[in-house]
Amino acid sequence: MAYSALAVANAFIERAKEGKLPDLTPMKLQKLLFYVQSWYLKQRGSPLFDDNFARWTHGPVIPSIYHEFKGYGSGVIQAPGSTVVPRPSSSNPFAYEVVVPEINRNDQDAIGFIDEVIRVYGQLSGWQLSQMTHQAGTAWQISGAPDGGPIPLNVMAEHIHPGNR
């Protein structure tokens, strides 16, 4: 089951608020999402979440996640992201509610991937992670110019970073 990118982003934010992930900036969040999606694709053959990465100047970016957290600039993210959805129990077609998407707390596979990405990459800064995505042979680097175009899922799975192809 693929989650929303915002639900997975919120899982990283939750761990940061618990003190398990230092200095979670919007850039760092983007790169951690890129690595968790890449590793999940490589190991499971399907995406963990349902959004695509674009090739931006500072590496792979999910535009919707960028817009959700851009207000933090280069600062630490303080709160989870939310979305507006129709209120399911209302007969009013204009009734909406704000929800904070989450991954299923019983999904140990997804939680395990998130925790492993934190273990491997969590101590690095957003800039360090961005530099890693720019290395020769990475999915970001081989998929084209930083023109906002998509990074294909199969390329992400096969070209995570040079030491792990």
Score class of each variant (00 low, 15 high):
7 A>T: 05
9 A>R: 03
10 N>L: 10
12 F>G: 03
13 I>A: 04
16 A>N: 05
16 A>M: 04
16 A>Y: 01
19 G>C: 10
19 G>W: 03
20 K>D: 04
21 L>C: 12
21 L>K: 08
22 P>I: 14
23 D>F: 10
24 L>G: 09
25 T>C: 03
26 P>E: 05
28 K>F: 07
30 Q>C: 06
31 K>N: 04
32 L>V: 07
35 Y>M: 13
36 V>W: 10
36 V>M: 07
38 S>Q: 01
46 S>D: 11
47 P>A: 11
47 P>D: 07
48 L>M: 15
48 L>K: 06
51 D>A: 15
52 N>S: 15
53 F>C: 11
57 T>D: 09
60 P>S: 02
61 V>Q: 02
61 V>R: 01
62 I>K: 03
64 S>I: 13
67 H>D: 11
68 E>V: 13
68 E>C: 12
70 K>C: 04
71 G>P: 06
77 I>T: 11
78 Q>G: 12
79 A>Q: 14
80 P>D: 02
80 P>K: 11
83 T>P: 04
84 V>N: 02
85 V>C: 09
86 P>Q: 09
87 R>W: 05
87 R>P: 03
88 P>I: 05
93 P>V: 04
93 P>S: 03
95 A>Y: 06
95 A>F: 06
101 P>H: 01
101 P>Y: 03
103 I>D: 06
103 I>H: 08
104 N>F: 00
104 N>W: 01
106 N>H: 14
107 D>M: 11
107 D>I: 10
108 Q>G: 09
110 A>M: 07
111 I>H: 06
112 G>S: 05
116 E>V: 02
120 V>W: 00
121 Y>A: 01
122 G>E: 09
125 S>A: 09
125 S>Y: 06
125 S>T: 15
127 W>V: 15
128 Q>I: 00
130 S>C: 07
131 Q>T: 11
131 Q>L: 14
132 M>A: 04
133 T>C: 08
137 G>Q: 10
139 A>G: 08
139 A>S: 12
141 Q>R: 14
142 I>C: 14
143 S>Q: 01
144 G>T: 08
145 A>P: 11
145 A>H: 09
146 P>W: 01
147 D>P: 10
147 D>L: 07
152 P>D: 04
157 A>Q: 09
158 E>D: 12
160 I>D: 03
160 I>S: 04
160 I>V: 12
164 N>K: 04
